[in-house]
Amino acid sequence: MIIESILVMSGLGLGFGVFLAFASKKYAVKSDPRITQVLSVLPGNNCGACGYPGCAGYAEAVCKDENVATDLCSPGGQEVADNVSKVVCRECDSVKEQRVAKLHCAGGIAEAKTKYNYKGVKTCKSAAMLAKGPKACSYGCIGFGDCAKVCNFNALHMGPLGLPLLTKENCVACNACVKECPKNLFSLVPKKSKVHVLCSSNDKAADVIKSCKVGCISCKRCEMICPVEGKAIHVNDNLAKIDYSKCISCGKCVEVCPRKIIINEKKKN
């Protein structure tokens, strides 16, 4: 009895074991060994900044297709790009500048007037659907912090003034907040740039003055004073915008701006 049961169990176990070993050999799927290697040098945030579904998706794409750049991982920066290039044996692409997210709005609770008292679901997305949001300025930050919720890197938090505050050190430029904001107030700016325009309103000057204390009134003083050849700041559609490829962060426009919406982070720190 005991012998029989032991024999049956060990026989079955052995049989199944051999069967599985045989099956895994016979039906083995050949996969590119570089994929796991690339995956091991990637940071593993699965943030999607590269444009592929997670680090595994990028690793597969970069091994399969020669045209996929090796420097797409923005959280990893130069170091990861070098490692990826090493694994896939390709010339290292020069890494794009390190970038961080920037909110282009300065209209917090104190500065921007409100149109109505919003009492719905507390997300920017739903608030934005109701007459373009509760703020009098239809371009301004709604302030329910959808961006802070979507940030996986602990870089965005809602500040006391109704605007999200960015912790630069934590930001990896994953683009999540840029996509999330219903007002498209975020953009990725070069990390070393210090001068930013904190307004996104395309309204005319008169309307801006009515709705917000700190909106761009398109006076063009910043454009006039800009020392860069060809001007690094332009006023189009009633809004000043910095051309980050030209801007030298001299801070002259910051001084002349009558609305104080161009800021110089260098000075503040």
Binding site: S5, M9, L12, L20, A23, Y27, V29
Partner: peptide, 28 residues
């Protein structure tokens, strides 16, 4: 073999093997 009392452990073994095999097979 009149070993019916072993059925639970045998069934577990079989199911685990089966699922493992199906996984390998489907992957290919």
């Amino acid at each position: 073999l009149s070993l019916q009392y072993l059925h639970i452990i045998v069934f577990i073994l079989i199911i685990a093997t089966l699922v493992q095999f199906v996984e390998i097979f489907l992957k290919k």
